[in-house]
Design a protein around this nucleic acid. Structure first.
Length: 200
DNA sequence: TGCCAGGCCCTCTTTAGGGCCTT
């Protein structure tokens, strides 16, 4: 069993994930990078997007497309097809006990984009059978910090506020590392997790 | 080529508007 002793004995295993995409339109954007982390186990794959990247997305993430190649800050990046990435992701998730997927703004952004991609490759059912549910740290942070003076909830701001550090935001792997650390710092009560937990 | 969202939550609310967060 993967994960530490505490996780393997609990009802679920937290798996933090993040997508870098071609833009913010959840109904049309395509995935460029899919990353996840659970404990020390990481997952990180890149894909050549099948639609044009918005200039803003390129500026923020550093990803551009040249011909059939994906570039990060001008240098080539190894890629796989979207079908391969999603199948590999399901295999990665299968290696954990009851994986509970956690992302910042998951409900509004990462989940609908991931769900649409899974539908596209008829992998939704397989995915649903493996995954125990989702948790959105954006919504969770609002509830956790409701009694405080904090009124900004971006991941970058929260990481700076609670972990006193900056990180390479908009690199999906760095984002999930920071999110896992932030979550561990918060260590929300199981009751709150149960309350916030949702399905696709 | 040119365009660029919208669900959720809050509140000066529910016959609604506006800010936030994600790329």
């Amino acid at each position: 069993t993967r994960g530490n002793a505490t996780q393997s004995q609990s009802e679920y295993t937290l798996v933090f994930f993040d997508l870098e995409t071609t833009g913010l339109d959840v109904a049309a954007c395509d995935i460029v990078q899919l990353s996840a982390i659970s404990g020390e186990e990481t997952f990180n794959l890149h894909m050549v997007p099948r639609c044009r990247m918005t200039d803003e997305a390129s500026r923020i993430t550093g990803f551009t497309v040249q011909g059939q190649a994906l570039l990060l800050h001008g240098g080539p990046v190894k890629t796989v097809t979207h079908g391969e990435a999603l199948s590999s992701f399901i295999d990665f998730l299968r290696s954990f006990h009851q994986p509970l997927l956690v992302a910042h703004n998951a409900k509004r952004f990462d989940c609908p984009v991931l769900s649409r991609a899974l539908d596209e490759f008829s992998l939704k059912d397989e995915f649903q059978q493996v995954v125990a549910g989702f948790l959105d740290t954006f919504l969770l942070s609002k509830e956790l910090l409701a009694a405080t003076k904090v009124n900004k909830y971006s991941q970058q701001y929260l990481v700076k506020l609670f972990l006193h550090k900056t990180y390479m935001a908009h690199n999906a792997l760095e984002d999930v590392r920071a999110l896992q650390e932030l979550y561990n710092k918060w260590n929300p009560a199981p009751a709150m997790v149960r309350k916030q937990r949702f399905s696709l």
